[in-house]
């Protein structure tokens, strides 16, 4: 632990004396790493964060369900219509079953859900924590000898990591069902054909891939806004800036993680 702390101090030291952009990046990297270590340390204090975690999970899970399912439904329907436009007359219709289900499971379900939640949950976390910082509520917690990490950050991060993958699975299922219903209505695709196509190209790895991706995205959607909100400065303007930065940073990270997980998990060359 001492070696890690020493290395982090070195990063901060180099950052302090480097050019301004390098200083900014290294300073943030150091503080973010310290935050991750603090979150790990706080895991033992379950009596503090578990009750708050359930409240957060209810807020973000129940509150986000409608918008996530709405977007997933539209994504499934549009994929279905575009598949019909591309394939009609050139490929067997059962391919539509494969395209819709694989598109939803591999890409659209996890990525669209994460991007929506980066806006919805990420903005909420950054704004809440930022406001608490500028109104001295975080200082107040510290002055009471309590850790803001276990009281404020851990409940939010754990709630997000539990809820976001679940929402992603709901989104996958909704997109596939709506995609099938759209294909049935517009292309005349039968359930048997749809199921045949979906099963023919399906591999269990696809579902695992979708789940692992959603966990990675959940990390980005929760950790980045929490970090940015927690370090907010300069009043109301700072809260606004933190909220925008949190959503943009989380969204960009989701896209980077999308490319990285695809490369690593599917072995695409």
């Amino acid at each position: 632990m001492a070696a890690v702390a020493g290395a982090l101090d070195l990063v901060r030291y180099v950052g302090r004396w480097g050019s301004r952009p390098a200083q900014h990046v290294l300073g943030n990297a150091g503080r973010f790493t310290y935050l991750l270590i603090d979150l790990m340390r706080g895991l033992t204090e379950w009596r503090v964060y578990l009750p708050r975690m359930f409240t957060q999970a209810t807020h973000i899970g129940y509150g986000s369900l409608f918008i996530v399912l709405l977007v997933a439904g539209f994504a499934g329907a549009v994929t279905s219509l575009q598949t019909g436009y591309q394939f009609t007359g050139s490929l067997p219709l059962y391919y539509a079953g494969a395209v819709i289900s694989e598109s939803m499971i591999l890409e659209l379900g996890p990525v669209l859900t994460a991007l929506i939640l980066a806006g919805r949950i990420g903005a909420r976390y950054a704004a809440e924590l930022g406001t608490m910082r500028v109104t001295e509520q975080i200082d107040a917690l510290e002055s009471l000898g309590r850790s803001p990490i276990t009281h404020l950050l851990l409940p939010r991060v754990i709630a997000g990591i539990l809820v976001i993958p679940a929402l992603t699975m709901f989104a996958n299922a909704t997109g596939i069902v709506v995609g099938y219903l759209t294909a049935k209505g517009s292309l005349g695709l039968t359930y048997a054909d749809f199921e045949y196509g979906a099963r023919y190209f399906f591999r269990p790895l696809d579902l695992w891939y979708s789940l692992i991706k959603s966990y990675c995205f959940a990390g980005a959607v929760t950790l980045i806004p929490c970090y940015i909100g927690y370090n907010t400065q300069q009043g109301a303007e700072g809260v606004g800036r933190a909220t925008t930065t949190a959503v943009v940073s989380a969204s960009v990270t989701i896209l980077l993680l999308d490319a990285l997980t695809t490369k690593l998990l599917l072995g695409v060359k």
Partner: peptide, 10 residues
Amino acid sequence: YVFQYGALFD
């Protein structure tokens, strides 16, 4: 510690 603006958890 009594904060200037209360710093109550809203």
